[in-house]
């Protein structure tokens, strides 16, 4: 636990200093929201119904970039050897990297979500607490799988292609759950969102535990 916090603090400090991850993720997130909205060419009436899909498609595509960067950090100068040579449980490395990814993605969401509301005429303020819950659950679920596969993809050939190839099909349940829950929340609050929220919670728990247990096989040689 202490080790995980040390890794989180280290990642945040590097991010704070370079702002590389957040700025690339920020620009790509905004771009994707704009492009996806334009591609649909929505009328003022249909615009709000597109919001959940645009939001989560932009989130997933942007998030992959952010997570991939987090592991290139450990590859530079072979810092991973430093981590693995220390008396640290690989599960703690997973937890630390996961937490750092969740923070990075949350900052990205804080930009992308209001932007979606603005472009697609959705009143987010009225539903804010429920929407925050959906965003957080989607964020944690995405990060728990992406952290595992980000580490894996960083160590194989053709890694730029490999991460989306491996991750996107596995993320389908998360995407469906998040879009359905967001749609329900925007229409009527948490009550109608139970199906989507259930999928999100199950996804978070299953892949949080799986990542925790399987991470050692991905980083140890």
């Amino acid at each position: 636990m202490r080790d995980a916090l040390a890794i989180l603090a280290k990642d945040l400090r590097i991010e704070w200093r370079t702002r590389e991850g957040i700025s690339s993720v920020f620009v790509l997130g905004v771009l994707l929201v704009v492009v996806l909205t334009m591609a649909h060419d929505p009328s003022p009436e249909t615009a709000p119904t597109l919001a959940p899909g645009v939001l989560w498609a932009a989130f997933v595509l942007t998030g992959m970039l952010g997570v991939q960067r987090g592991f290139l950090l450990e590859r530079e100068n072979d810092c991973l050897a430093g981590l693995l040579g220390a008396p640290v449980d690989p599960a703690a490395i997973y937890a630390g990297k996961l937490a750092a990814n969740v923070v990075l993605l949350a900052v990205m969401q804080a930009v992308v979500v209001p932007l979606v509301g603005l472009f697609l005429h959705v009143d987010l303020a009225a539903r804010l607490p429920a929407l925050l819950l959906v965003c957080l659950l989607g964020n944690v679920g995405f990060a728990s799988l992406a952290t595992l596969f980000g580490a894996l993809a960083a160590r194989v050939r053709a890694r730029e292609v490999m991460l989306p190839l491996l991750l996107l099909p596995l993320l389908v349940p998360l995407l469906i759950g998040a879009v359905q829950a967001t749609r329900a929340v925007l229409v009527g609050g948490l009550a109608g969102a139970s199906g989507g929220l259930g999928v999100l919670v199950a996804f978070d728990v299953i892949f949080g535990v799986a990542g925790w247990l399987l991470f050692a096989y991905v980083v140890r040689d």
């Binding site: 280290k10 400090r13 590097i14 200093r17 100068n77 072979d78 810092c79 050897a81 430093g82 040579g85």
Partner: peptide, 10 residues
């Protein structure tokens, strides 16, 4: 090792 295992931005 061959590489220094230190983060360049710290």
């Amino acid at each position: 090792g061959h590489e220094i295992s230190c983060y360049p931005d710290l």
